[in-house]
């Protein structure tokens, strides 16, 4: 986003701000006063194409495409300093996670994120825990005198993925690959 962006008022998605603010935990978006505290304390501020305060401004303006296609929403390290320091109590890091999920709905998911979601679906844990891997881990635990792990019923995990729509999203994006 280094070149200047010009858009007519009619090209803005005026509903975008409410699309975000109606979701759980995200009402605070509308309170931003553009002071920039979030960006000044941001851990990844020098690595992003849009700094936190500019992401919020873009959401409020209705620059949906620009926000959801930015690399900034995925670069964040979730250190939560922005949320902590905001004088207007905007939950920026939480809103950022919502923006990621909106981008994901459109099929834009970096593989660094999709792979762990699939591992959890297949193992119940974010680390592969089946067959040979399981055997090695169990052996190592037994050597340390640690109790056996009784993991979750895989069907329950899969059911929750299905009911909340994540299963379908994974299928959709895998097909799209």
């Amino acid at each position: 986003m280094s070149q200047r962006l010009r858009k007519q008022a009619v090209e803005l998605d005026k509903n975008f701000r409410y699309e975000i603010s109606q979701k759980i935990g995200a009402k605070s978006l509308l309170k931003c006063i553009q002071c920039g505290v979030c960006s000044s304390g941001c851990t990844v501020t020098e690595y992003v194409d849009l700094q936190p305060h500019r992401i919020v401004a873009s959401c409020l303006l209705g620059l949906k495409e620009e926000v959801l296609s930015s690399q900034a929403i995925w670069t964040c390290s979730l250190c939560h300093r922005c949320t902590e320091r905001c004088p207007k109590n905007v939950d920026y890091s939480f809103i950022l996670a919502l923006l990621r999920s909106m981008a994901a709905q459109e099929g834009r998911i970096p593989k660094e994120y999709s792979s762990s979601v699939i591992t959890i679906l297949e193992n119940g844990f974010v680390i592969p825990y089946s067959e040979g891997m399981k055997k090695n881990i169990d052996k190592r635990r037994a050597r340390l005198g640690l109790p056996e792990i009784s993991g979750p019923n895989q069907n329950e995990i899969e059911f929750i993925y299905e009911e909340t729509g994540l299963k379908e999203l994974i299928k959709k994006t895998e097909v799209g690959k």
């Binding site: 994120y113 995990i157 999203l169």
Partner: peptide, 16 residues
């Protein structure tokens, strides 16, 4: 199960 992991799962689908 996994807690589940706050970085990727929260990012992809908050309800999951």
């Amino acid at each position: 199960s996994c807690c589940p992991e706050p970085v990727s799962l929260q990012s992809l689908n908050i309800d999951t």
